[in-house]
Design a protein around this nucleic acid. Structure first.
Length: 318
DNA sequence: GGCCAGGCTAGCA
DNA sequence: TGCTAGCATGGC
């Protein structure tokens, strides 16, 4: 058994994170909202452990404790704490973001309503990339279905002491061994299957070194990965946002963000890419986070959250 | 039934 | 260099 407190820079809202996870289901995550808890298998050292994230306190005074059933070596303890801190964006200080959003009347209601929402990052860059490739041009529900099928088909699992099974994302080696014909029955398109397997092979044969990405700037990462077939700018921007936690990406090709900007800024028509870049200029250096809040605004409207609709109406009377 | 999904490639001017 | 049809299938 290992337990540690993870320092969180407030504000941090576990409640807002849960709302987001409702519309972005993660087959690897088991969430117990009432208990303020979630569990997931994480690779520590060379094996996967079931890790418990226990949240407590409040948005302004958040507490997070992580624990594992098994003992960990001191080196593994450090590794786990680092991974978890990164995953929950623990060190990100949102105050400058809110100070900036305060100057934009269209963003004010978002800052108020989603206060404390941060990214829950995907700790494994290989997984982050595969998930983004799967998500290209598909609705989120179906994209998640495909991800679950890949997990079950090629992935692994670990079982905790209570007998609960936790899915582990397949390694690059496991995906590299697959053939396109094996993914087609899972309802992957021919191309998507090719892209995914090709990327896994690029990782296993060393053409792509994911460990190097951490040290690169956003633009360097984009230049590095763009030549790979099936991987466009949007996919890499999402890798930077959801995998590496970079704070200043604006994926202008993203249809959801496009719809969201129209909604939040009350535009008569969907903005084109130059217009999106223009509006997004004032969000720097927080464009990833404003994008997140705009995606969530779309989600809140879709879920019919009347409190959010009211807040939007008050701030932006027609 | 038709249009849209948190895109990308290949092929053609 | 720039444009766009085609992809592949679910969701609403």
């Amino acid at each position: 058994m290992f337990t540690a407190d993870i320092p969180l820079k407030p504000p941090f809202s576990f409640e807002r994170l849960l709302y987001r996870l409702q519309t972005h289901p993660d087959a690897q995550l088991r969430i117990e909202p009432e208990a303020g808890r979630m569990r997931r298998a994480l690779r520590v050292g060379n094996r996967s452990h079931v890790v418990t994230f226990q949240f407590a306190g409040s948005t302004e005074q958040p507490l997070l404790t992580v624990s594992t059933e098994q003992d960990l070596t001191p080196a593994q303890q450090v590794e786990l704490q680092k991974t978890v801190s990164h995953m929950v964006s623990a060190g990100v200080d949102l105050q400058p973001l809110y100070a900036m959003m305060e100057h934009d009347k269209h963003l004010q209601p978002l800052a108020a309503y989603f206060r404390g929402l941060k990214y829950l990052l995907i700790p494994d860059l290989f997984q982050a990339m595969i998930v983004n490739i799967i998500g290209q041009q598909l609705n989120l529900t179906f994209a998640n279905t495909l991800t679950v099928r890949l997990l079950q088909f090629a992935g692994d699992s670990v079982t905790d002491q209570t007998g609960e099974e936790y899915l582990v994302f397949p390694t690059p080696e496991a995906v590299a061994r697959l053939e396109v014909e094996q993914l087609r029955p899972l309802q992957f398109s021919q191309r998507k299957a090719e892209y995914i397997i090709d990327f896994a092979r690029a990782v296993t044969d060393g053409r792509v070194e994911l460990e190097r990405l951490e040290q690169m700037t956003d633009e360097e990462v984009i230049e590095y990965l763009l030549p790979l077939r099936g991987i466009g700018r949007w996919t890499i921007e999402c890798l930077l946002m959801f995998g590496l936690g970079r704070p200043d990406l604006l994926p202008v090709a993203d249809i959801g963000l496009r719809n969201g900007m129209q909604l939040v800024y009350g535009l008569a028509e969907k903005p084109d890419q130059p217009q999106m870049l223009r509006i997004g200029e004032s969000w720097m250096p927080w464009r990833s986070y404003v994008s997140l809040y705009i995606w969530e605004a779309v989600g809140a409207v879709r879920r019919g959250e009347s409190a959010f609709a009211e807040m939007m109406k008050q701030k932006n009377p027609k």
